[in-house]
Simulated assay, not measured.
Amino acid sequence: MLRRNLRHTTRNPLTVFNAVIMPIVLMFLMVYILGDAFDVGVSYADYATPGLIMTTICYGIGPTATAVNSDMTTGFINRLRVMHVSRAAVLNAHVITTMLRSLVAIVFVIGVALLMGFRPSASFAQWLGVIGVVVLTILAIGWLTVAFGLAAKTPESAGLAAVPLMLLPFLSSAFVPAGTMGPGAREFAQYQPFTSIIETLRGLLTGAPSAGSAVTAIAWCAGLTAIGYLWARVSFSKRG
């Protein structure tokens, strides 16, 4: 199942391209056009890159939701019923494909960020921490996306179901400190899950990790993974 999904990705490279191009456009916009307007205390490229990593993950989930729904609505799962194949492998393969596709996109985005002035000061161990947090985040968002895809009625609506996750980075500390936002938006940004994940990545990349934000980020990732996994399995059992 994983090989099948990877073949679909290689035959449609736009799934990776779309996940890369929008964060890069945002990077140019935020660093070169709007960056001087924000007082974040450090180089804006250093500040924005963790948020752009999260944005890259979120912009890469649309094809996953659509592909999961297509498997359910085009009869592919019905063909598996007569074969000695674990139907759970369908869901696992989609999550792993999402993870691999997102990691490739993140490498491209970090490369562009380095060209635009991003200068991380993380140690080797802290880079390993960054990779671990990124993998946990993709796992959590991947399972939520699979659940969205299964809950949707059509592939088109499945793609739209992932839009709220794409918008959440903009309502976090990805591009401006949450404390500078207006009432209501400030509280939402401070306590939504993406902010703790972004702050953890920011701390690791700048060589000043925060144990508090790291624990919160890991807890959010574990909770969202559990919710997405259980929701996906229940929806899959009902529809499959």
Rank of each mutant, 00 (worst) to 15 (best):
L171Q: 00
S86H: 11
R11P: 01
I110H: 10
A174W: 01
A189T: 12
S121D: 14
V107G: 02
R4E: 13
Q126C: 12
F108I: 11
S121E: 14
T206N: 15
G132D: 03
T200M: 04
A19F: 12
V104E: 09
V176S: 07
P193R: 04
N5I: 00
C58H: 06
I24W: 02
V31M: 08
V134Q: 05
I218K: 03
M1G: 11
A208R: 14
P183W: 11
P183G: 12
R101N: 12
R233A: 13
Q192W: 02
R202L: 04
L136P: 08
L150A: 03
S123K: 09
L52Q: 02
G182M: 12
L224Y: 02
L103K: 01
P120K: 06
F188R: 12
V234L: 12
A67R: 09
L6T: 04
V82T: 15
T154I: 07
P164W: 01
G117V: 02
G184T: 10
T10H: 05
F148Y: 14
F108V: 15
G179V: 10
M27N: 07
L205Y: 03
S237K: 15
G62K: 13
L34N: 10
P23L: 08
I138W: 09
S70C: 03
R3K: 12
G132L: 07
V135C: 07
K238M: 02
M54E: 02
A178E: 14
N69A: 11
R233E: 12
S102E: 05
A161Y: 09
G212D: 12
G117W: 00
F118D: 07
S213P: 06
R233W: 10
N5K: 12
T200F: 06
R4K: 13
R4F: 13
A222R: 03
T74I: 08
N92P: 00
I53D: 01
V68Q: 05
G184E: 09
M27W: 03
A89V: 08
G223D: 00
A37G: 15
I198K: 02
T98E: 13
T195L: 10
H94E: 14
T225Y: 11
R3E: 13
I141N: 04
V109E: 06
R101F: 02
F38D: 02
A67P: 00
A222V: 15
N5Q: 14
A19I: 06
L103Q: 10
V104M: 14
G240H: 05
L6P: 05
F170P: 09
K238V: 07
S157P: 01
L230Y: 11
A226E: 00
L80F: 15
A214M: 11
P23G: 07
A48T: 03
T200W: 04
A185N: 01
Y44F: 06
T56G: 05
